[in-house]
Nucleic acid binder design. Sequence first.
DNA 1: CGGGAAGTTGACACTCCTCAATCCCAGTGG
DNA 2: CCACTGGGATTGAGGAGTGTCAACTTCCCG
Lengths: 239, 239
Amino acid sequence: MLERHFAKLRARNVLSPDDEQTIRTAIGEYREHPADHVLINPGVELTHSTLLLDGILCRYRDLRNGQRQITELHVAGDFADLHSFTLKHLDHSIMSLTPCRVATVPHDRLTEITRQSPHLTRLYWFSTNLDAAIHREWEISLGRRSARAKLAALICELFVRFEIVGLTQGLSYELPLTQTDLGDCTGLTNVHVNRTLKELRDSEIVIFQDGKVTILDWAALTHAGEFDPAYLYLEKRDR
Amino acid sequence: MLERHFAKLRARNVLSPDDEQTIRTAIGEYREHPADHVLINPGVELTHSTLLLDGILCRYRDLRNGQRQITELHVAGDFADLHSFTLKHLDHSIMSLTPCRVATVPHDRLTEITRQSPHLTRLYWFSTNLDAAIHREWEISLGRRSARAKLAALICELFVRFEIVGLTQGLSYELPLTQTDLGDCTGLTNVHVNRTLKELRDSEIVIFQDGKVTILDWAALTHAGEFDPAYLYLEKRDR
DNA sequence: CGGGAAGTTGACACTCCTCAATCCCAGTGG
DNA sequence: CCACTGGGATTGAGGAGTGTCAACTTCCCG
């Protein structure tokens, strides 16, 4: 069950059997959620964090005029709200975009980890810093990139993140999101996402269809999105 | 020297005299930098973090076409790159926008803190999570807000952050940035920043002039920027 | 006195949004 | 078996917001 989480950690950190065991015992319970289900609301006091085992979650906020901005997507193996451990409540919502399986981790046990395991503490600290790095990359997309580059960059990022946890098949992966979801990630309207995806498809760079991404030309895609995976910190080392 | 840093921490955490003493002894050396000086380049291995004592720093990245996106501004009392402790190198640059005084904190001593002081560890972990919350808020601005709302939100955020460390005078504060800098924060051009600031000035909401912000109508400003300080986590509690 | 950086303003272009119609397809119920 | 429904995708036409380019001003500083 936790294999994808371990895979994610191992891609960046040295993970000892002891660490793994500590993580296993930190798990509270397992839960399932349907698609489009709000797991966490802003401002609500939280006593556990949520580890995503399968499916796609997102962090988002709704605006006054009804618009929505997704600030991060979560794939299997990610903690969706490890930051709630120190924040105690969130400034955004978390919802499922597909059916999801999750595990909960009580904050008490995380506190225990900060007392007993400095190494694992730094490793989870790193993990929240990685979320921040993803936020920064999205700021760059949102602030300065064209619609085409925004979508290309997003598709590249997700390819790499899915690959780490073994969820790619060759140059393609399942991405059962709507075009509106993609627009909420990139600050675009669903209409413009549609046009831009068509353009990427017509240029034979990438196809997004039937909830599946198929990359036809990785070099062209990374170039279009000005994608450099450095911000994903894919170096396995002691943290 | 560290008073502003302590003020920032105390606004959100319970800080014991012991904690303060530990922080004091963690400081390496003090340095000064002129304006427009790059302190940290992406990819360079880092062995210490930088605590800003005075001035304004920013995290930013340059794009292929020469554009720049600033992903966060740092005010006195902030760690500019506490995240480099677990990341080891950064995915972005850090530069001074004004002359700055900083203190360095060797990563060795932070490692020591994770071994000896679980409480202080959580507190600094919180601090990087706060940076991430600011990143999220900027994503929302960059993705979904109008030029007017973006600038209003930024001005609100900085007012609150400066106030915490005692750098406001009534409803105004020093902000010696150029309109191009503000554009790099908000994803706008300097020309459009200029027009939008004029509009905010003409509506008698806020004046940005001669490196100084003067808020004329706080209610109108927060409304224009859809500003809710929840993401700044201004509750003093045990973390 | 000259030069450069920052601010200001105008004219025009372009990206992306808005609104609206149509299509497609899976699920549902008669 | 098939009409009906609803969500998502697609396409077109026109408009709004922001960018681009360029000129000019102001001010500081050497």
